[in-house]
Design a protein around this nucleic acid. Sequence first.
DNA 1: CGTAACTTGTGAAGAAATTCACAAACACGA
DNA 2: TCGTGTTTGTGAATTTCTTCACAAGTTACG
Lengths: 209, 209
Amino acid sequence: MKRIADSTVRRLSLYLRFLEEFEARGLTTISSEELAARGGTTSAQVRKDLSFFGSFGKRGLGYSVGELASRLREILGLGREWKVIIIGAGKIGAALAQYHGFRQRGFRIVAVYDNDPAKIGRALDGFRIRAMSDLVDDARRDPVDIAVLAVPAQAAQAVADLAVRAGIKAIMNFAPQQLHVPDSVALKTVNMAMELEGLSFALTNREST
Amino acid sequence: MKRIADSTVRRLSLYLRFLEEFEARGLTTISSEELAARGGTTSAQVRKDLSFFGSFGKRGLGYSVGELASRLREILGLGREWKVIIIGAGKIGAALAQYHGFRQRGFRIVAVYDNDPAKIGRALDGFRIRAMSDLVDDARRDPVDIAVLAVPAQAAQAVADLAVRAGIKAIMNFAPQQLHVPDSVALKTVNMAMELEGLSFALTNREST
DNA sequence: CGTAACTTGTGAAGAAATTCACAAACACGA
DNA sequence: TCGTGTTTGTGAATTTCTTCACAAGTTACG
């Protein structure tokens, strides 16, 4: 299969969200034009994105909301449950652990880790915080799919290495630190500072055309 | 000035981070090759990114760490302080309000808003939570640069409209909702669910080359 | 059945981003 | 001062992504 661009995957994710809204409103079909309007893109883009995976629409009519949604869920791998652990029980880790939006979409948090002795053993939204040193054993016994890193920058690479050693195949990194992992591990970094600097740049350079 | 791609701005932000590390270690020069290695890109990319803004290096030698860092700060608009408000004092809003990394980089949180009467007036990391209805007046009296949206999806668009009405020129959106704002307002959306779905896609489709 | 009004799927064109590759500039040592 | 070894800055080539534009399929309706 041809390599799918990151930007395409992001858009598929968006389309799915809109389709679910439409589904909730009881609508049964939708055109690429309507989908595009909500996503701030063009109908050609929508059709091209979908064309990488097959042809799901009916000419002259559009797409069946329910069918397209379920195809997208399948494409995005949302048909199954993914086991997620959160590493780092600080402010961000805690906010994530308590965020129930994950669960809805099939991402089930199975454990929270920290290496602060003061936190280990305490409860966090139903989870007893476990010691970081248990991670590798735990994950070997009961495999985990995704690790969410919410640790300080200076610890991030070491923790990522640990996660890789534990056999985890995907990491979502919230630490403001560039991580290096093997190619076989999927990595996404969400860096607040970088996003803010993007806004700062936009604010600074906006008079120019 | 030519339009600068988003991806370029992100990388500049990254380079600045590395330069600051180098600076802290007392190094005075760095080559595009070294910068590229840490950022997971190529030296040509680094040089091209910088070339949009001028020529900051010395052939045969590389870049002066201190000088390049300060030029990048200038380009990114980090020479001044930006006033930030956080809208939504829930889990995420609270985590953001307490995150002190903002301050270091010149993003100063000046207020936190919510519309839950039970929360208004209470303190959150030194801020007294204000009523959403005060926002427009507050911002007109004392202009704000950036609004961070940490409200539920169904409220997000209305709150964004409010922020726009208050004269705010940049919005960083944490709500899982596509927002529509005038072109004159800079918008960045960080959507956790989308990022996770990106990982899910990668995990699902990884055997193929 | 025939025609009008839509909308998809997709090659081809166009635009944008990345990489190549090399002349020009500089440091350093002899 | 000259030669060697670096490294930048940048046009050109290449690759990737987006948009165009239209044939082909579908519905609606008289």
